[in-house]
């Protein structure tokens, strides 16, 4: 029987084609499954990081409420302590005046011995000076407490702010003027694209820029070729502001706490750790977001997104 006569030859060739096709299909499906799996894994990762972000925002919100309460509680005693201290200051002046009068009208020699020995035993000249200073320092300290309390209130941020139409770029320019001195030795690079005015609280947004720029300046302290670059641009219906520095950067442990109130790595008296948490509150209240990426010893970049209203 010749090949042409054998119907199984044809059948065999058909089978072979069918098998090759099946193998190709199997490979195609494997590829599709692989891609779908990849996409799933990607969305899973995204979900996970979004969840982390949500947890963080929740934590910050709780801290906000807590800080508002604490601020309120501290404010009341703070008010009367401050007012008492300034009253004491004026009382002190009165006592000091009495003493001067006494000393001028009744020379020491003419005093009764008991009074005279008491005056000589205590260094009233020093006491007078020191008392004044003590009260001044106390008032100064109270002012600082009041500032911190104010910061806490700003972070908690529930008062609806007065909004007005403003140009973000102008705010950046005026903030930069304010910072002339601290930024003296730093190269500042600006790329400010024209932006539409947005409804915002300009002084608050300026405060955010100020906080970011002072942090950048701090991070650049003692580094070679210090540079800050400020960029603004419009992306769809969002205004983006990025402020980056080539400063010391931050480890992950700092980045993840940066918006937490009172979190600071700076020396006592240098930083209160409120700058970024206040900024966070302000940007949130504008319906925007603030993000950080940072690499240790390389620098940091902050991105603020604000919706165009």
């Amino acid at each position: 029987m010749s090949n042409d006569d054998n119907p199984y030859i044809k059948a065999y060739e058909r089978e072979k084609r069918a098998r090759l096709e099946a193998e190709r299909q199997l490979e195609d499906s494997s590829r599709i499954i692989y891609k779908k799996n990849q996409a799933l894994e990607d969305s899973y990762e995204k979900l996970k990081s979004q969840q982390a972000l949500m947890l963080k925002q929740e934590k910050l919100a709780t801290l906000g409420t807590l800080s508002a309460g604490v601020a309120h509680e501290i404010n009341n005693p703070l008010a009367f302590v401050a007012s008492n201290v300034s009253t004491l200051q004026s009382y002190l002046q009165l006592y000091q005046h009495v003493q001067t009068l006494l000393e001028t009208h009744y020379p020491r020699e003419t005093m009764v011995p008991a009074l005279r020995s008491y005056l000589e035993a205590n260094d009233f000249e020093y006491i007078n000076e020191d008392a004044e200073e003590l009260l001044e320092d106390t008032l100064e300290g109270l002012k600082r407490v009041a500032n911190i309390v104010q910061s806490l209130k700003n972070f908690a941020y529930d008062q609806p702010a007065k909004r007005q139409s403003a140009d973000i770029n102008e705010g950046i320019e005026s903030t930069l003027k304010l910072l002339k001195l601290p930024l003296e030795h730093i190269e500042v690079e600006k790329h400010l694209a024209p932006l539409p005015n947005i409804d915002c609280n300009p002084s608050e947004l300026n405060q955010v820029i100020l906080n970011l720029l002072t942090n950048a300046a701090d991070a650049l302290d003692g580094r070679s070729q210090p540079k800050i670059s400020i960029k603004t641009y419009l992306n769809g219906s969002e205004i983006l502001i990025t402020i980056s520095d080539n400063g010391c950067g931050m480890p992950e442990s700092v980045v993840s706490n940066i918006f937490v109130p009172f979190f600071t790595t700076k020396d006592v008296g240098k930083g209160t750790g409120m700058g970024m948490s206040i900024s966070y509150g302000i940007v949130e209240s504008h319906g925007g977001s603030i993000e950080v990426i940072s690499e240790e010893d390389k620098g940091s970049e902050f991105t603020i997104r604000l919706p165009v209203t």
């Binding site: 119907p7 199984y8 044809k10 059948a11 058909r14 069918a18 096709e21 099946a22 299909q25």
Partner: peptide
């Protein structure tokens, strides 16, 4: 038989190669 199937393919689907893969 196989010859009958070959013939059916040739008459019904003269322009096709006659190979069928289950999932396609």
């Amino acid at each position: 038989g196989m010859a009958a199937w070959n013939e059916l393919l040739e008459t019904a689907l003269p322009d096709e190669d006659g190979a069928f893969t289950a999932g396609k």
